[in-house]
Write a protein that binds this DNA or RNA. Structure first.
Length: 457
DNA sequence: CTCACTCCAGCTTTCAACTC
DNA sequence: GAGTTGAAAGCTGGAGTGAG
């Protein structure tokens, strides 16, 4: 590489080579002494390599290392970049399975106290076009733990479905909430949509604690979002009440879910979130940053199957808490109504582990609907539904997609997602409001998976 | 020469398909 | 059944490029 570098004179090459030699000498000496501190200087030292530097070589890691060494010996460095791998047209994921969920009962440890019934109208002015089923079943995160969606019985209005999950309040405490809807768009004006929330808490709740939980519910369902503007540019979405895409009760959960969404097929994302809630979060709730920080990255890797994401999630938690030498990340700053998308994007992309896709995804979750999380799914979608050339590159399709959705500005993401989501439904032959994840979310393959099936070898 | 930007190789993990 | 291979995902950071 050095010899091909423009303008690199021979003395420069010698000097750099000497530095590299000295560095590798110091590095190996430190590793031998068990220090490993030099890993911060390693070229391209990823979070994984740094983590592995500290790890004991397990049988598995040893096997993988040997396998790689063997491959290098036999194939040299011919490893293909995944970015250049031509995408084959994706066939509908027939292997994906959906089923009615198991009975979504309130867990036993939340049943002890009397339930608190809350009328949604006391907290929000619920729009007349609101639909619980459409709000929930509009983004894949509804299928991730700790969310549980129970679809309405067949033959009944889709809005008779219910959403249950544990919510965090007062930092560490957990309350179990079940959200139902009465009335609907179709029963106007006699019976406008309203939300009814049942809370099961281990003790009496103060008003401000209930308010905290309701803020989370409102955020998840985007209850107070006005979708009129989007429906004007996309009338098909109005017909079905689509536009309030589902998200988490807090930005922290959205950010972690985005990290688990990267470099992983959907079933893997489902499993990671399930294990995080089972092993790290209190009472099956989504873990708080503090709970994540109780564990080392290696522990999270092994117990939650997070892989290299463990270090990224841990660092994000340290940022949120402002500890371990991290500059404190104020999550409320992102939620400010006068915040500009560019400001938020710039701050997110500076965070370790957040690239372009992840930063755009967090932006759209924050409500910046012009943000466009462009990924391999967009490429597949454009090749399948917009007659993009099968040879078109990632960047070509990105330009094509930006141009295509510019007519929906400032709702590019919603238009894109509506198109993609309805294509998923068409492929599956059922509406998303009837989808759910089976009771046991640890199953690694199958349900709710829209990733590309492997071609026969 | 510096800066800002783009490009892309290499990274890690998982899992289905394949081979022995 | 155990082991191996290859494909897939998005992020990181070094290399390359062009403008000033």
């Amino acid at each position: 590489c050095l010899s091909t570098r423009r303008g690199a004179s021979r003395p420069t090459i010698r000097l750099v080579a000497l530095v590299v030699f000295l560095h590798s000498f110091i590095n190996s000496a430190q590793i031998q002494r068990g220090l490993g501190a030099s890993r911060i200087f390693l070229r391209g030292a990823s979070d994984m390599s740094s983590t592995h530097a500290k790890m004991k070589p397990t049988t598995k890691s040893l096997r993988v290392t040997l396998r790689r060494s063997k491959r290098l010996l036999t194939h040299g460095s011919k490893r293909k970049s995944s970015g250049n791998t031509p995408l084959k047209p994706q066939v509908p994921p027939k292997h994906a399975r959906f089923s009615r969920s198991q009975s979504q009962k309130v867990p036993r440890n939340f049943q002890e106290k009397k339930a608190i019934e809350i009328d949604g109208q006391n907290f929000w002015k619920i729009p007349k076009d609101f639909s619980l089923a459409q709000s929930v079943c509009s983004y894949g995160y509804f299928a991730l733990a700790p969310n549980r969606w129970t679809p309405a019985p067949h033959g009944e209005d889709e809005d008779r479905g219910k959403l249950s999950r544990p919510f965090r309040y007062a930092n560490e405490k957990v309350v179990w909430a079940t959200i139902r809807q009465s009335g609907s768009r179709s029963s106007l004006p006699e019976s406008p949509p309203n939300l009814h929330i049942t809370l099961h808490a281990p003790h009496e709740l103060a008003i401000h604690e209930i308010q905290e939980v309701m803020d989370g519910v409102g955020r998840m369902l985007r209850v107070q979002m006005c979708v009129k503007g989007f429906h004007e540019v996309c009338p098909e979405a109005k017909d079905r009440g689509f536009g309030r895409t589902f998200r988490s009760p807090c930005l922290w959960e959205d950010m972690v879910k985005t990290i688990t969404n990267c470099n992983m097929k959907w079933s893997g994302t489902v499993r990671m979130n399930h294990l995080l809630c089972t092993h790290v979060g209190k009472n099956g709730a989504f873990p708080t940053p503090k709970e994540v920080l109780k564990h080392k990255a290696q522990w999270l890797q092994e117990n939650c199957k997070l892989g290299y994401r463990a270090e990224r999630i841990r660092r994000l938690a340290a940022c949120v808490e402002g500890i371990e030498g991290m500059e404190k990340l104020d999550l409320q700053w992102f939620e400010a109504s006068d915040r500009k998308r560019e400001e938020a994007f710039e701050r997110i992309i500076k965070l370790y582990g957040f690239g372009k896709f992840a930063a755009h995804n967090v932006c759209q979750l924050l409500g910046y609907h012009e943000s466009f999380p462009f990924d391999s799914e967009t490429v597949r979608h454009f090749k399948e539904h917009h007659k993009a050339s099968s040879k078109a590159k990632f960047t070509d399709i990105e330009k094509l997609a930006r141009k295509h959705y510019s007519t929906f500005a400032p709702y590019q993401f919603l238009a894109y997602w509506f198109e993609l989501w309805t294509a998923y439904e068409k492929r599956r032959g059922s509406t998303s409001t009837r989808w759910t994840v089976r009771g046991n979310q640890t199953e690694s393959s199958g349900f709710f998976d829209v990733s590309k099936p492997r071609s026969k070898r």
